[in-house]
Design a protein around this nucleic acid. Structure first.
Lengths: 342, 342
DNA sequence: CTGTTAGCGCTTTCAA
DNA sequence: TTGAAAGCGCTAACAG
């Protein structure tokens, strides 16, 4: 069903049909009726592809992330989708698995498909991003941004919350504090590590290199990293695990070795969803976590992008750091400190 | 950058450019070189929108689900996206929140955007689906399908696994077995309930209506449902919670009331991701769960849809039931039965 | 082997 | 107030 058929059915020109559909120009009431009837009878909907070709605008944005099945990203995407829907935009989803080849492929496809903008959690390969810049496609980065690349970034206040989390552990009386981080290429990892290091230093606690365990940001990575920490001769009394999946992995290791957290080792984890409850709450003991403003990151990123696209507001190379929260629960109570205080 | 500019730059016709781009017709080596150089120099990529308009084909499918931040759906979508990528298709994501108005809106948009097919977890309103059928857009349903609607459905073997889970509880010596289910409108809910009822009946255990608690398929729903069950005078000794988020909610309630599962009440939960580990494993005690083939559901659905779209293979109104697994862990050990066996 | 041209469905001048 | 026609970028039939 196309505009031509509708026009013939109504006995008018296609221009008139178009006018009725968009209500821009004034159309005589009687002809409008005829057209409306035709549209209804024939169940006509304008072809958005043809409209896009004409308007050079697709009302679609591309979202490029590493893995939608990671709750961190799925919650972000929910925020993106909600904001997009509000402005009449749709979202094309792309999973890169942190693979810059896939990233490149998707970026190419999105370009071919003439999407109006991109929200990107970059893998870290700058070539892709530089190419993107040349293309003049509006981009908002989320979570992280490679060095040397400038552009708007929406992320968490990683360093700050990491400092706070570390400080909490120190306040609980711990001195031997380990950290489990993801790939060091990623800017958020660096920031989280920085917060940890800075806090230890400011409290006069020396940095032990072997207390910094690197994982692959997923469950197995967290498991292995925790194992490495636990097998140290002089093992940490407390561990800060800096993402949600690795937290799961770390606890999986502890469970498999029958190690009780908060007795044998204190844990701070990460919560990447924005739910009121999640599994870190219902474990025994409940886990102290850093809660990320995940949904908000997505929403804000989409909002900025769409304000640029629809209202032409300039896209500044600015950081938007949304605040995390430290939710203190049972897993970081120092049994020793407790005893002392009794 | 368009084909015309490339043609002029290379000093050939646009048809020739099109030919070298697609490598269909034979082009003289020397002119091919010229064109290739032009394409490279000008960084030309064909405009997929124009191609789509011509071909009446967008290489895009729509995925309509209730909420991407639900791990069940995000894992399904990962499967869909992987299968789609393989065939050169992209995915537009739509969240309905089980709201048929949103569902309808998205279906309209997808139609306007001329997507080549839809994967749909239906809200239950038949009008939307009947309209869809009229449109002749290929649809594959996932997870559930309303009565009266026929079409291909990819889902889990809900009734079977529910029977199995219930049987496991009976085998552990439980007789007072509760179940927490989602909305009864949804076909999977009915199937899970059926498996439970059938199993109890076949073992000569009477059905108590008050042991069947209905939630909203999300965390709060699970929490309230568990509360209702636990406040019964004659409360169940074991509860089967039939989705992942409600499992979390149910345990949240137990935790808040200081009720130990597997001592005070046995629990079978649901795991909706396909990960090797998840939070149900690391709780104390670890939770017996039904593990859904979530990724596979998405993959299979996309595969069927795309086989139809690209190879014209007919889309049969058939059910594909992928097998769940019952993973038996600590939360369903009957303390009483244990004692007896010692 | 290469070029001309019609047409995909739509919007938007411009003229009537 | 309405309509004719150009053109968005591309493909494919057809002519040369």
């Amino acid at each position: 069903m196309n505009i031509k058929t509708v026009a013939e059915y109504a006995g008018v020109s296609i221009a008139t049909v178009s006018n009725v559909v968009h209500g821009k120009k004034i159309v005589k009431a009687s002809t409008r009726e005829k057209v409306l009837k035709a549209i209804h009878d024939l169940n006509y909907t304008p072809n958005a592809i043809a409209q896009s070709l004409k308007a050079r605008k697709t009302n679609t944005i591309g979202v490029v992330i590493s893995d939608i099945s990671n709750p961190f990203f799925s919650t972000i995407i929910r925020g993106i989708e909600d904001a997009s829907k509000e402005s009449g935009y749709n979202v094309i989803l792309c999973n890169t698995d942190e693979d810059y080849i896939k990233e490149n492929e998707y970026l190419e496809v999105l370009k071919r498909k003439q999407i109006d903008g991109i929200i990107l959690s970059a893998t870290g390969r700058n070539e892709n991003l530089k190419k993107l810049k040349k293309l003049q496609i509006p981009v908002v980065y989320i979570d992280r941004i490679p060095e040397e690349i400038d552009g708007p970034l929406v992320t968490s206040d990683n360093e700050k919350i990491s400092y706070e989390a570390t400080q909490h552990l120190i306040a609980q009386g711990f001195r031997k504090i380990g950290i489990i981080i993801g790939s060091k290429i990623i800017s958020t990892t660096k920031e989280r590590l920085n917060g940890y290091i800075k806090c230890l230093q400011e409290h006069g606690i020396p940095i032990h290199e072997e207390y910094i365990a690197v994982g692959d940001s997923r469950i197995t990575g967290g498991k292995k990293a925790m194992e490495a920490l636990y097998k140290l001769e002089d093992r940490p009394e407390a561990v800060f695990v800096t993402n949600s999946l690795m937290t799961l992995g770390a606890l999986d290791y502890l469970k498999s070795e029958n190690i009780r957290y908060s007795n044998d080792v204190s844990i701070i984890g990460y919560q990447d969803q924005d739910w009121e409850a999640d599994w870190t709450l219902i474990t025994n003991p409940a886990i102290t976590v850093v809660k990320q403003p995940t949904y908000q990151i997505g929403w804000k990123a989409a909002h900025q992008l769409l304000k640029h696209i629809t209202e032409g507001e300039e896209l500044q190379s600015k950081r938007y750091e949304l605040p995390c929260k430290l939710i203190i629960r049972e897993s970081t109570q120092n049994p020793r400190a407790k005893k002392e205080s009794m």
